Amino acid sequence: MAWNEPGGNNQDPWGGGNKGNNQGPPDLDEAFRKFQQTLKGIFGGKGGSNGGNHSRGGSAGQGGGAGLWIGVLVIAVLAYIWNAIYIVDEKERAVILRFGKYVETVDPGLNMYFPPVESKFQYPVTQINTYRLSQSMLTEDENIVEVAMSVQYNIADLKDYVLNDSNPEQSLKEATQSALRHVVGSSEMDMVLTEGRAGLGEEVKERLQDYLDQYGSGLNIVQVNIESSQPPRQVVGAFDDVIRAREEEQREKNKAEAYANQIIPEARGDAQRILEDAEGYKQEVVSRAEGDAARFSNLLGEYKKAPGVTRERLYIETMQELLGSTSKVLVDVEGGNNMMYLPLDKLMDSKKAKASATGMSAPSQVTLTQDEISALADQVTAEINRRVSSTRQGRTAR
């Protein structure tokens, strides 16, 4: 039955009592004031203006002290639980130590640990961190270079990162300087500044990772970038001159190699052709000598059979070979004491001169007409007859 219904004895739940049958809304200020008094009674405060006799006040004070300690305990428990509950993000991991001893590595999610018995170390393990370094150092050939580099790394093993090294970041810095100085100190300046710059970063990365693994730092080197490598500013001008001279040297070498690539194949071709010509000449000479030897052997056999005939034939063949290409004719008259000389080449030259005088083009090959041949034959015959007659008259006179 509702408190304000008939027969409900007007029991106001807000403590207002019967206020002259006034059924309006409860007094909120009065309700709040009563709530404050109740809290004060719980935590040891006095009950209000009509607190009652002394015995009731003593009981209320004892109850309020107990309630205070209970409230403090509840708050402490809630605060402990609030601090013990933690969330591990996707990019993070957490390591739990119990009395300083490793317990587990916590994966992402909602978790809870119990301090001070347990300790929690929570770090991002997938985040890429960057450490930059710029140093001046000596190369193997005792030149100074300035190298600027950046190291990108992340946490690969959180347990090692927490337990094995008290300051992994400082170990990374010192190991980076050591690795860089070792690699640069083992290289010449030209390699550091020019073509060896790309491989320099890989060498530093391998050596640095080896150092960190020996330390057990739990760090992983993702990339080492050589951002710049240059000589000291005080000698940049001289170094630029050296670079230009080296480029000029390389250009001249390239030109010489191009010329050599052009000349050497031609020389090799000429040499090969000479060798082939010599081999052909050798084969020709050998074959001719073998043929001459075989012909001489055959001729010797024929000579042994008929020496006179062979000598005559050899003489005729030799004279035919010698006089076959000459433009002169020698006529030997039987019984005469001399030979008649017919200069056919002179006759040919005179005919060419006559053709040039008449304005006709001289043929490349001069031929005699039939009449000219007949006239020449008549002259030869008359000369022969004359010489024969002269020879006979001389013999008669003797």
Rank of each mutant, 00 (worst) to 15 (best):
Leu330Phe: 03
Glu249Gln: 11
Val285Pro: 01
Ile263Phe: 14
Ala306Tyr: 12
Ala271Ile: 07
Leu314Tyr: 10
Glu247Ser: 08
Glu252Lys: 10
Glu290Ala: 12
Gly280Trp: 10
Ile316Asn: 03
Gln272Arg: 13
Glu317Arg: 15
Gly280Leu: 15
Phe296Lys: 05
Lys328Ala: 02
Arg288His: 11
Glu257Arg: 12
Gly280Met: 14
Ile243Ser: 00
Tyr281Gly: 09
Glu248Thr: 03
Ala256Ser: 06
Lys328Tyr: 00
Ala271Leu: 15
Gly269His: 09
Ala271Ser: 07
Glu257Met: 15
Gln283Cys: 11
Glu247Leu: 11
Gly291Thr: 07
Gln262Glu: 14
Gln283Asp: 01
Lys305Glu: 09
Glu276Ile: 01
Leu323Ile: 03
Asp292Lys: 09
Gly308Val: 10
Val309Cys: 05
Gln320Glu: 06
Ala256Glu: 13
Glu252Tyr: 09
Ala267Asp: 05
Leu300Lys: 15
Val286Trp: 01
Glu317Trp: 05
Arg244Met: 07
Pro307Ser: 04
Asp277Gln: 09
Thr326Gly: 01
Ala306Val: 04
Lys255Met: 04
Ala271Pro: 00
Ile316Pro: 00
Tyr303Ser: 00
Asn261Trp: 07
Arg251Phe: 11
Val329Asp: 00
Val285Tyr: 08
Leu275Glu: 06
Pro265Cys: 06
Ala267Gln: 12
Phe296Ser: 13
Glu317Lys: 09
Glu252Asp: 07
Pro307Cys: 01
Glu248Phe: 05
Met319Trp: 03
Ser297Ile: 09
Ser327Thr: 03
Arg311His: 14
Glu279Lys: 10
Thr326Arg: 00
Ser297Lys: 15
Leu275Val: 11
Asn254Ser: 12
Ser287Tyr: 01
Ser287Gln: 13
Ile316Cys: 06
Gln250Lys: 04
Asp270Trp: 05
Ile243Cys: 03
Glu248Gln: 10
Thr326Tyr: 02
Gly269Val: 10
Leu275Gly: 14
Arg313Met: 05
Gly308Glu: 12
Ala245Met: 08
Phe296His: 09
Ala271Val: 09
Glu252Ser: 06
Val329Ser: 00
Ala289Pro: 00
Ala293Asn: 14
Val309Glu: 02
Ser297Gln: 07
Glu276Lys: 13
Gln250Val: 11
Lys305Leu: 04
Tyr259Cys: 06
Thr318Ser: 09
Arg246Gly: 06
Asn254Tyr: 04
Ser287Glu: 11
Arg273Asn: 08
Pro307Trp: 00
Leu300Ile: 07
Gly269Phe: 01
Leu323Asn: 08
Asn261Ile: 08
Leu300Trp: 01
Leu314Trp: 05
Glu248Leu: 04
Gly301Arg: 08
Ala258Ser: 14
Arg244His: 15
